[in-house]
């Protein structure tokens, strides 16, 4: 126990007397628990919205990262814009055309029980190094949900006057002869102000991790994607929580392809 001088004791006494009748409110713990629950839901929503747009982020990252080697007609240096038109009831073809500006194939419910939850659509600008728009990319981002688990299907209308990177990964041939590509990677999400370590840079260079930065992000995720193209549309099925296996994702792609 610290020994105080008389002077110190007076200060301590004054402070103690000042708060002598201050007590936590009876409801403080329940208030705290409610706030924790609310924040967790908010964080889940943030992560959902990050994941939700992750398909776009990842696709855009792939587009941007491979710009130098893949683009024929125009060099695309960046992607800008937002996917902010939302439909949270299963859209008709007409609604899809009006909202997204194109009509991809899409399913209301899959045989594995996942159901349509929401679709975000919009048009992204593809820009050159001088920030001049060289093309547009129309995209529709579908979310499917079952028992709290989700996966996403991104449908991207291939841009005019520019090419997008080739699909990569393991080639899988479906029963109808269509080819799809599967690949997976580990993605590290870090806070916006995170400074990459030397190990991070090595991991990024050798493909151990892809990196993304954003507010309140700090986790590692296994990302899987199955891709194919049909009628000038690039389709990508994304899964981030390992709630689907490769086989599940290939089956999903088959059901979309077979949709009339």
């Amino acid at each position: 126990m610290r020994s105080f001088t008389n002077f110190d004791e007076k200060i301590k006494k004054a402070l103690t007397q000042e708060v002598d009748d201050i007590s936590p409110s009876d409801h403080m713990l329940s208030n705290i628990q409610k706030q924790i629950t609310d924040r967790k839901e908010d964080n889940n929503m943030k992560i959902k919205s990050v994941k939700h747009s992750k398909g776009i982020m990842v696709a855009c990252a792939i587009l941007v990262l491979t710009t130098a080697t893949c683009f024929a007609a125009s060099k695309i240096a960046s992607i800008s814009g937002s996917i902010d038109k939302k439909l949270d009831t299963f859209p008709t073809t007409k609604q899809m055309e009006t909202t997204a500006g194109f009509t991809p194939k899409y399913v209301e419910e899959f045989s594995n029980g996942y159901k349509f939850e929401v679709v975000f659509a919009g048009t992204l600008d593809a820009n050159d190094a001088d920030e001049n728009k060289v093309s547009e990319i129309k995209t529709a981002d579908f979310t499917y949900e079952k028992d709290g688990a989700e996966f996403y299907i991104e449908a991207m209308q291939k841009p005019k006057n520019a090419s997008i990177p080739d699909m990569e990964g393991e080639l899988v041939t479906l029963t109808n002869g269509q080819n799809v590509y599967y690949h997976d990677w580990m993605h590290k999400f870090k806070p916006a102000d995170y400074v990459m370590t030397e190990q991070d840079k090595i991991d990024q260079a050798n493909g151990t991790y892809e990196f993304a930065f954003g507010e309140d992000l700090d986790f590692i995720q296994h990302c899987q994607v199955v891709e194919w193209e049909e009628n000038n549309i690039r389709y990508s099925v994304f899964c981030y929580d390992d709630n689907l296996t490769k086989a599940d994702m290939v089956k999903i792609s088959e059901e979309v392809i077979n949709k009339n």
Partner: peptide
């Protein structure tokens, strides 16, 4: 926690908010 918050701010209301 509540008492320290009160001493720091002089406000009873803020003290609860801060501690929470």
């Amino acid at each position: 926690a509540v008492r320290t918050a009160y001493l720091l701010t002089g406000s009873r209301i803020l003290a609860d908010d801060i501690a929470q």
